[in-house]
Design a protein around this nucleic acid. Sequence first.
RNA 1: GGCCACGUGGCGGAGUGGUUACGCAACGGUCUGCAAAACCGUGUACCCCGGUUCAAUUCCGGGCGUGGCCUCCA
Length: 449
Amino acid sequence: MELKLYDTLTREKRAFRPLDPARVRMYVCGPTVYDFAHIGNARPVIVFDVLFRLLRHRYGAGHVTYVRNITDVDDKINARAAEEYPSLPLNEAIRIVTEKTERQFHDDVDALGCLRPTVEPRATEHVDEMKALIEKLVAAGHAYVAEGHVLFSVPSMPDYGRLSNRSLEEMEAGARVEVAPYKKDAKDFVLWKPSKPGEPAWPSPCGIAAPGRPGWHIECSAMSWKHLGEMFDIHGGGIDLVFPHHENEIAQSRCSFHTPVMANFWMHNGFLQVEGEKMSKSLGNFFTIRELLADWPGEVLRFNMLRTHYRQPIDWTLNGVAESFNTLEALTADPGFASSKVEAIAPSVLEALSDDLNTPKAIAELHALHGKGDMAALNTTLRALGFSQRPQSRRRVDAQKVSALIDARLAARKAKNFKEADRLRDELHAMGIELEDKRDGTTAWKVKA
RNA sequence: GGCCACGUGGCGGAGUGGUUACGCAACGGUCUGCAAAACCGUGUACCCCGGUUCAAUUCCGGGCGUGGCCUCCA
């Protein structure tokens, strides 16, 4: 069956046909590395990992190129570096912050069962490409130099705004920010700006004497160009990036290369709330991936994320995660799951995923395989979806104490002192220990989620 | 204010113009000293108001609610 994907640009679900089936190309906006990634950041990483796996399955692992950038030049990074390492030169502090954060990010998403992208380009290693694009845009009349800045001229692109479905006139009316005096038009955005002393700086393009640094959007145009070409198949990210980030990427890339589209499919994952409220530090419901991994296995977090379709809003709740633990534990109970490393996607699951990544449906199909007793298909499909191990509770227990209590309970049972036996079981239960009396007279136990 | 999503049983969530989604939880049963696990069984829900229709949760219009973007943000 064919793969159908929803395209934000055309607002329709349609058949996916790669420009070149021998090289399917996907770009996803990656993290700005200045702090631990939060659970909202995890959503696109997991969602597009599933898509990456699906594309590899359909076109062959060697025929899919997945690029996810690392933004390592940004005001927030500078601020964090200055704050954490005030005694170091800023550039050195920045390097420490970005490298450390990148490692943390990798550790976190590895634990979530995500494959590494084919390429993870860093913005600071693509400044030459950014400058080349900026030069092209100026030469083509789509950008201009003003007071050491280079600005993209939004009115120079008649169909600017198609992705976010807003017309130039509408944006005119909605302008709320104070307009910098050097801008020809309020909507124009920065491609290059001067660096303040001490800030990261590179020789400027377009004959600007003072050193500068790139604007926010140009890096993605540059890195996708370098690694995927002038046009490619899929561009993904969070729905909040539609405007202005992706809109501006499109403007930069299309006006540089005179292409009808930048990517054939624009995919955006929905937002995440926590316990029914917007996640924010002030509400105290802000969770980093790292914090959640302390309490829950990564595969449980992954499963919980995939229970909701990627375009739907997701309400991240403690109850939901606990339910995911139980469900995933049941689905991975077959001993064959742990022993086999074979990956394969069962036809029913493939069909669900091929319908715009319908992961809730796919999970229902996993339950159907489980119900039918088709454990081989279930196990290999789970692995293909990135679930590599059965969830283990993160509760810490004193195993010696547990076995002592269990021995005492077995003794009490033998003596038919059932009141004492039940009391001991309750005590263990309070510690999060679930008992299972086997037929052979022994007692197995496990730690609850 | 403009633009855009979403609103299904206790919870998650698929899907459909007329037939049981599925899962979790709960409840009943088998099993057990009692439990747990496992297995069997039990749930007729689709925000509101109009319209179209023989028939709407499903299509159309309006309303209400929630969230997102318009400024850094997945």
